[in-house]
């Protein structure tokens, strides 16, 4: 069970004046149950890449395998793929359309061919997962707050119970609290359901706390691929491509440079605290 990309290339508007190479020779393998961060600044191709993963965009070159099967082979069911690889778009609240929250979340499961009752059950479970109680089920999705709308939209994909969940900038435009809530819920979901989660973001800070692996994209290519601490070691190069390492990384490097014996690979505040305390104890 995995997602594997081999030499994926994608050219927008091929053969016209607007031709842009959006993806260039992308290779990776994402094993089951991984929590992965896909990072890149605007226009780096990250949104384009994730749309390949559930077959919404067909690569102009290269192969993509889901669970070992070539998704571009003739007769491969894209519908099946899409119900296995759930994709939550940027600003997903813009896709809400039903009269009440519950029916909107039911849309996915019903498309999967489930009965009304089973779909409702799934929808309720999905709404719980994103922290929306029973009292929201019969409300119109359009009268909710921005953060609540977004959670309804995420629940709409969760209700399909995908094996891989991809979220494109799920925290864009949310306040810090809404952001933390959604990311915490995702982390909990990943822990409990053991599904693969791919978090697309331009913010290292958001991602560093949660993910096990980071893929950094720049100009349609993969720049770095590894554990957060490995990737953040290149914080100077990251800055050059318009990204930044978490603030902790900068502080740790500054401390190290000023002579304190700390582990400069700490990526979270907790790790930083421990290594600083350790360094002081040693002295």
């Amino acid at each position: 069970m995995s997602l594997k990309a081999e030499h994926i290339n994608y050219i927008y508007s091929a053969g016209t004046a607007y031709e842009i190479a959006a993806l260039r020779d992308i290779n990776f393998e994402i094993p089951d149950g991984q929590f992965l961060g896909l990072i890149g600044h605007t226009g780096s191709g990250k949104s384009t890449l994730v749309q390949h993963l559930n077959g919404l965009i067909k690569a102009t070159g290269g192969q993509l395998y889901f669970n070992g099967e070539d998704i571009y082979r003739e007769g491969y069911s894209m519908r099946e793929l899409r119900s296995q690889v759930g994709l939550v778009f940027q600003y997903p609240e813009h896709q809400l359309f039903e009269v009440d929250v519950l029916s909107d979340v039911c849309f996915g499961p019903l498309n999967q061919g489930m009965s009304k009752e089973a779909a409702k059950e799934r929808a309720r479970a999905a709404l719980r997962m994103v922290g929306l109680g029973e009292e929201y089920e019969s409300r119109s999705p359009f009268e909710l707050s921005g953060g609540q709308k977004r959670r309804v939209a995420i629940a709409g994909v969760l209700a399909m119970e995908p094996q891989v969940l991809i979220l494109d900038e799920p925290t864009a435009g949310l306040d810090p609290r809404g952001r933390d809530e959604i990311l915490d819920q995702l982390a909990a979901l990943h822990r409990e359901k053991k599904i693969t989660v791919i978090l697309v973001s331009h913010s290292m800070e958001d991602v560093a706390r949660y993910v096990e692996r980071i893929i950094v994209m720049n100009q349609g290519k993969i720049l770095y691929d590894g554990e957060p601490r490995e990737v953040f070691r290149h914080y100077e190069e990251l800055e050059q491509v318009g990204l930044a390492a978490p603030q902790v990384t900068y502080i740790m490097h500054a401390l190290k440079a000023s002579g304190l014996d700390v582990d400069e690979n700490a990526t979270t505040i907790r790790e930083a605290r421990e290594t600083i305390l350790q360094a002081f104890r040693k002295e």
Binding site: G86, L87, F89, Q95, G108, N111, Q112
Partner: peptide
């Protein structure tokens, strides 16, 4: 295009 894709991701046909 975006909404179409988003609904297709939810299994719309």
């Amino acid at each position: 295009d975006k909404i179409m894709k988003a609904q297709m991701a939810r299994g719309a046909d």
